[in-house]
């Protein structure tokens, strides 16, 4: 998942073929990250599509300071966290399109995915940290760069998240 400078420049000049190359390199990682944070396949597919659309339109903002991978992960994680935040806000305003029966159907489908029901017990930000570590294998420093957090915070948050998940597994 490390596109060279040439590909990134081509993407920045609006070449759709360059986006396809980057999708082939990193589409899977972006999808898995979105699935880990959002918790269901439909949302992860929609999010992956939107993340790549954003990548295409916002590629010009990439300034080569951070690694492209970090920048793309940040785009993906921020997109997913903002989506969850918006949903919470919309449900607070009672303007959400999702009805109660739809929510019940979603939770039934999610119950089959034990990994995601487990991850759903964590708050979205902590979940993102664990997804980047466990599913993507990022180092603490890379996670810290992606999430704009100190390395020490990443370390302690991961430790707390794992303790919590271990306790949940013991109880169930």
């Amino acid at each position: 998942m490390k596109p060279d400078k040439k590909i990134i420049h081509r993407l920045q000049s609006g070449e759709m073929e360059a986006l396809k190359v980057i999708y082939e390199m990193s589409g899977e990682q972006v999808y898995r990250t979105a699935l880990g944070i959002l918790g269901n396949r439909q949302d992860a597919e929609d999010a992956t599509q939107d993340i790549f659309l954003r990548l295409y339109h916002k590629a010009g903002r990439y300034n080569f300071r951070a690694s492209f991978t970090t920048w793309l992960y940040r785009l993906a994680v921020n997109y997913c966290l903002n989506l969850l935040r918006r949903r919470r806000f919309l449900s607070w305003l009672q303007l959400s399109d999702t009805t109660d029966s739809e929510k019940r159907e979603e939770s039934k489908a999610d119950a089959k995915l034990t990994v995601h029901t487990l991850l759903a017990r964590l708050d979205p930000r902590t979940r993102s940290l664990l997804v980047l570590r466990e599913l993507q294998g990022l180092s603490y420093q890379e996670i810290a760069n992606t999430m704009s957090l100190p390395v020490g915070t990443v370390r302690s948050a991961l430790s707390r998240a794992r303790s919590k998940l271990k306790n949940i597994r013991r109880k169930t």
Partner: peptide, 11 residues
């Protein structure tokens, strides 16, 4: 992982 490129291209 599903192939989402056709969707992205259309979008």
């Amino acid at each position: 992982v599903p192939d989402l490129w056709p969707r992205i291209e259309t979008a």
